[in-house]
Write a protein that binds this DNA or RNA. Structure first.
Length: 779
DNA sequence: CTGTCCTCACTTTTT
DNA sequence: GTGAGGACAG
């Protein structure tokens, strides 16, 4: 058991205490994943069969990583027999096996959020409701909320509290929309994300024999990030663990930041109530951050009342104090951050990949990006459109879905006229009416459309052709491999031809994305992907079952992405760590968000979010704010966040501002007001006021300062972007985000339509529209 | 049916 | 300021 010797006493106890209910409270950087993986490995080493272990995570990434790490200790085949995956994927798997019990086919479709919203929209329209009042996203949230709390549509309608709430908010029809939504999903043989958990609960409730089967199977259950579970997940876990009581939950209440998605922090705070025999282990030693960072985070989180007692500490050196950056505007904040990165990279021999910029809202990325671009610092934004959410991918997958499950209405509506086959809105509406009248699916109306006198010969022919197309795909489902069929569908659906006509960079990139998808399918077909347990069926249906629950395409590991500054929301940063972290936009009404200061609970969640942000840093931590910020196109005055003041002042270095705040950067009427606020702020907040004379800036900094001033004034006067491509000329060497290095051969067109022909080393000659291309000039 | 202009709304989002 | 979706004209 040599693997145990690398653990500290608390970690080791948590690993070795395998029987009975266990709660592991794991502070940030305390080796949580290590404990979880070792615990599972330990179980297997002690004779537990891997298939008796159920390990639930929230993300595919977490499951993947854990599996990898377990493989390093036990054998690969053992590791792959563990029931390890996200809540959604594990229960989707079970639901497919037990689908019959719920009246669903095993090949049911999983609707993503877009499908759900589009279905809701079609329902509200059908009911003649105003979709300004019944906004799809609002309705979706409401339904999601109900499902996460295990309230069915029927119960929703019968619940006086809920219906009263809806009536007083002017949306009395919500319950009926929910009901229709439920029916339409069922008719389409589809489940949404929440259904995967909701219906698992229904399955277990209505089928005690099924529950019993899984209770017996899963002798050991582990749940990661338990603080983020919702009621639906809580109940599934509780039911499954009821027989053996070998339930181990791991989490950190201080990092619960997903209540808006239904996560209930009380699940972890009140865990002991369900299991009086509970053993609690606290992992309090932090291996990630310097003492100053750990203590700064502690000093902030202690303002929260609702929390489990623990004290995070570290043996790491003190390190630097936390630095506060004060900027007069959001743009300047970006420049300050970019300069700091530039400076630290030199001084501390850090690479770009060692830096992260964390913000509260996605919209804050823009100013950061601009500043980084100006300084030629490569960066990567996390959390953009994920691969499987891109239109071209969704389109082709809709064809796959429809071929597997022809009841899938959302897929049908997506592709029936894409590529264009002359089946217009009117026709589709008529089809929907017919389907509704006859209480059958859209597809079955299509199948009989040539017999029905509702459509003229032309339309009828088009519809029939479409049906034959899909049916021909269906017929080959079990004859061709996933890859062969996918390739066949992309061409014979006409989708590929459609995309090939588009010669713009976006069009090219779309084709590349389709090719990437086909590669993924090929890998699936060949069984290269080791993460897949028993390759049940390697046909397209099998692939589709996997893909619905994937959100990222693992992009982070690819092509040199590693040496870039990471930009992301704090939510997206959870679980990550970086040597140097900038938490930006730490201002009242932004962080904490204006929308989250209404209640104590909301504010505490914001504070936990700030705690998460601070604890991402290993060595260097910067907190920045701007005194003025553009929001919705208008400049707004901003106060530093209360959270800044909550950091123990002994751990903080006074604000570093750019030193030219008093220049006439602003020449508007509100100059006075701003100065006044400044004065006030300083007198109110002594912690932020320099207590000793400001040291003069080092020489190189002074220069840099002047440089920013120039950039700044240039930007203010002309207000045009200093985009590198403006100075692009023929013969230059450039680097493109996707195509790599190349030489500019020709520039043509003017202004916004300027086009360049670039000869790329690897990708060959491409025509690129400069307004879209992210080109970096190399010389 | 498609393209263009205009209006509107706008935290966070593991699945 | 920005992007998405709706209205309306061609």
């Amino acid at each position: 058991m040599e693997y145990l010797s690398t653990l500290n006493p608390a970690q080791r106890n948590a690993v070795e205490h395998t029987e009975g209910p266990v709660m592991i409270i794991a502070g940030p950087g305390s080796g949580k994943t290590r404990v979880l993986t070792y615990r599972i490995a330990h179980l297997i080493k002690n004779g537990v069969q891997p298939h008796q272990i159920l390990a639930l995570t929230f993300t595919n990434k977490a499951a993947r990583e854990m599996k990898e790490r377990i493989k390093a200790i036990v054998s690969g085949s053992e590791a792959s027999n563990i029931w390890m995956g996200t809540f959604h994927s594990v229960f989707a798997r079970i639901l497919r096996v037990e689908a019959e019990r719920l009246g669903y086919p095993p090949g049911f479709t999983i609707y993503d959020t877009d499908d759900s919203k589009s279905l809701i929209k079609s329902i509200t329209q059908g009911m003649g409701l105003d979709d300004k009042i019944y906004k799809p996203s609002l309705v979706y949230n409401r339904i999601s909320n109900a499902k996460n709390n295990l309230i069915s549509a029927r119960e929703y309608l019968n619940n006086p509290d809920v219906t009263f709430e809806d009536r007083s908010s002017g949306k009395p029809k919500l319950g009926f929309i929910y009901q229709a939504y439920e029916e339409r999903c069922f008719k389409s043989s589809a489940m949404d994300f929440d259904d995967l958990l909701f219906k698992t609960n229904v399955l277990f409730k209505n089928n005690p024999d099924v529950l019993y089967k899984y209770q017996q199977r899963f002798k050991f259950i582990l749940v990661d990030e338990y603080q983020d579970t919702n009621y639906s997940q809580y109940l599934i876990v509780k039911k499954l663990a009821a027989m053996h009581q070998n339930i181990c939950v791991v989490g950190d209440d201080a990092q619960s930041i997903y209540s808006f998605r239904g996560a209930n922090i009380q699940n972890i705070l009140k865990f002991e109530k369900d299991y009086p025999e509970l053993s609690v282990f606290k992992l309090e030693q932090n291996y990630r951050s310097t003492k100053n960072i750990v203590e700064a985070a502690n000093s902030v989180i202690k303002y929260n009342q609702d929390q489990l007692k623990k004290s995070v500490w570290t043996e790491n050196p003190d390190g630097e104090r936390i630095k506060i950056l004060e900027a007069s505007t959001d743009n300047e904040e970006g420049q300050l951050v970019a300069n700091k990165i530039f400076e630290l990279r030199m001084q501390n021999q850090l690479g770009n990949g060692d830096f992260a910029i964390l913000y509260r809202t996605n919209s804050q990325s823009r100013t950061m990006e601009e500043a980084l671009r100006k300084r030629n610092i490569p960066y990567r934004i996390y959390g953009g459109l994920s691969f499987y959410k891109r239109k071209e991918i969704k389109d082709i997958i809709a064809y796959f879905r429809l071929s597997v499950n022809s009841n899938d209405e959302e897929a049908l509506k997506r592709v029936i006229n894409y590529p264009v086959r002359g089946i217009g809105k009117t026709t589709i509406e008529r089809l929907e009416v017919l389907a509704d009248e006859q209480k059958v699916t859209l597809f079955s109306i299509l199948e009989q459309c040539n017999m029905v006198p509702y459509f003229n010969a032309g339309t009828s022919k088009k519809l029939t052709e479409f049906v034959y197309l899909i049916k021909s795909f269906k017929a080959q489902m079990n004859k061709l491999t996933a890859y062969d069929l996918a390739k066949h569908i992309t061409t014979s659906s006409g989708l590929m031809r459609e995309l090939e006509t588009d010669k713009t960079p976006e069009g090219i990139s779309k084709i590349e994305n389709i090719e990437e998808l086909l590669n993924a399918i090929q890998e699936f077909t060949d069984g290269i992907d080791e993460n897949k347990e028993e390759p049940l069926n390697r046909n397209l249906e099998g692939f589709l079952q996997d893909v619905a629950l994937l959100t990222d395409a693992d992009e982070s590991d690819k092509d040199g992405e590693k040496n870039k500054v990471s930009l992301m929301t704090i939510h997206a940063a959870k679980g990550l760590e970086f040597p140097c972290v900038f938490v930006v936009g730490v201002e009242e009404n932004l962080f904490p968000s204006q929308l989250s200061i209404g209640t104590k609970e909301e504010l505490e969640e914001e504070r936990r979010l700030f705690y998460v942000a601070l604890t991402r840093a290993e060595k260097h931590l910067f907190v920045s704010y701007a005194q003025n910020r553009y929001r919705y196109g208008q400049i707004h005055h901003a106060e530093p966040s209360r959270f800044v003041d909550e950091i123990d002042e002994r751990l903080v270095d006074k604000p570093i501002s750019s030193g030219y705040n008093n220049s006439n950067f602003f020449s508007g009427g509100f100059d006075d007001e701003r100065k006044q606020n400044w004065g006030n702020k300083n007198s109110q907040k002594p912690t932020l006021t320099p207590t000793f004379p400001k040291p003069s800036l080092p020489k190189n900094l002074v220069k840099m300062d002047q440089a920013i001033k120039q950039i700044n004034s240039a930007a203010t006067i002309s207000n045009t972007d200093n985009e590198p491509q403006q100075s692009l000329s023929e013969g230059m060497n450039v680097e493109h985000q996707r195509f790599g290095k190349g030489k500019v051969m020709l520039i043509e067109g003017n202004l916004s339509d300027q086009k360049a022909t670039i000869n790329f080393d690897i990708a060959g000659t491409k025509q690129i529209l400069l307004k879209f291309a992210k080109l970096r000039i190399l010389d």
